[in-house]
Simulated scan of single mutants.
Amino acid sequence: MERFFSLRKVTAMLAVTCAAVGPGVAAASDTDNTPTRIVIGFAPGGALDVLARSIADKLRVSLGGVVLVENKTGASTRLAVEAVKRAPPDGKTILISPAPPFVLFPMTYARPGYDPDKDFIPVAHLADVPLVASTSVNQPFKTMPEYVSWVRKHPETAGFGMASMGGAIHFGTLAMSKSLNLPLTPTAYRGASMMVTDVMGGSLPIGIDAIASQVGLQKSGKLRFLGVTGTKRSTLLPDVPTLKEVGIPGFDMASGWYSAFVPAGTPAATVSRLEKALIEAVKDPALRAKMAVAGMEITGLPGAEASKTIQTQRAQWKPIVEASGFVAND
Rank of each mutant, 00 (worst) to 15 (best):
T108I: 15
V137F: 15
P155E: 07
Y109W: 15
Y114H: 06
P122V: 04
H125Q: 00
D90Q: 12
L79H: 08
M144K: 01
K85D: 09
P122N: 07
A133V: 08
F141A: 15
A83C: 01
K85W: 05
R111M: 11
R111Q: 11
E146I: 02
V129P: 00
P116Y: 11
F102A: 05
V148S: 04
P101W: 07
P130S: 01
P145F: 15
A124T: 13
Q139C: 02
F105W: 12
F102E: 01
T143N: 12
A124F: 04
H125D: 12
S149D: 15
S134D: 11
P130C: 06
S149F: 02
T108A: 10
I96F: 08
K85Q: 11
F105A: 02
Y114A: 04
A80I: 14
F105L: 00
K92M: 09
Y109H: 13
E156L: 10
S97R: 08
V132D: 05
Y114F: 15
T135S: 13
F141P: 07
Y114Q: 06
S76C: 01
K153V: 11
K85L: 03
V123L: 03
F120W: 09
K142N: 15
K72D: 13
V148P: 04
S134I: 15
D90M: 01
V151N: 01
R152N: 09
F141I: 04
F141M: 03
F141C: 10
D117F: 08
E146A: 12
G91Q: 03
A99T: 00
P155H: 11
M144W: 11
P106E: 03
T93I: 06
T143K: 05
L95F: 13
I121F: 00
V123G: 10
P145K: 07
P122S: 07
W150L: 07
A110D: 14
